[in-house]
Simulated assay, not measured.
Amino acid sequence: MDKFNFFNDMQEKINQVLENSPVKDIEKNVKAMMGQGFSKLDLVTREEFDTQAQVLATTRAKLEALEAQVAALEAQMKKQA
Score class of each variant (00 low, 15 high):
Arg60Asn: 09
Ala61Ile: 01
Phe4Tyr: 13
Val55Met: 10
Val23Lys: 09
Ala32Cys: 07
Ala68Val: 00
Arg60Ala: 09
Ala65Asp: 09
Asp2Cys: 11
Asn15Lys: 09
Arg46Trp: 08
Glu67Gly: 01
Gln11Pro: 05
Leu56Met: 07
Met33Phe: 12
Lys62Ser: 03
Val70Leu: 01
Gln16Thr: 14
Arg46His: 07
Lys79Trp: 02
Phe38Leu: 13
Gly35Val: 05
Thr59Met: 03
Phe38Arg: 08
Lys40Trp: 06
Lys3Tyr: 15
Val70Met: 03
Lys78Asp: 07
Met10Leu: 13
Lys40Glu: 09
Gln80Pro: 03
Ser21Asn: 00
Leu66His: 13
Glu64Thr: 07
Gln16Asn: 12
Gln69Asp: 09
Thr59Gly: 02
Phe4Leu: 14
Lys62Arg: 12
Glu27Asp: 11
Lys79Gln: 04
Leu41Asn: 02
Arg46Val: 06
Met33Pro: 00
Leu66Cys: 04
Asp25His: 00
Lys31Phe: 08
Glu19Cys: 02
Lys13Cys: 01
Arg60His: 08
Lys24Val: 11
Asp9Gln: 14
Pro22Met: 11
Ala71Arg: 03
Lys31Cys: 05
Glu64Leu: 08
Met1Asp: 11
Phe6Lys: 14
Gln76Tyr: 10
Ala68Arg: 13
Arg46Ser: 12
Lys24Arg: 10
Ile14Phe: 07
Met34Gln: 09
Val23Gln: 08
Ala61Gln: 06
Ala75His: 05
Met34Ser: 08
Gln80Leu: 11
Phe7Gln: 06
Gln52Trp: 02
Ala68Asp: 13
Met1His: 15
Ser39Met: 03
Arg60Glu: 11
Gln52Pro: 03
Ala53Gly: 05
Ala81Pro: 03
Leu56Asp: 05
Ile14Val: 10
Ala65Ser: 13
Asp50Phe: 08
Ala65Ile: 08
Ala61Gly: 04
Ala61Tyr: 00
Thr51Glu: 11
Ala57Met: 07
Phe4Asn: 14
Val70Ile: 06
Gln16Lys: 10
Asn20Val: 02
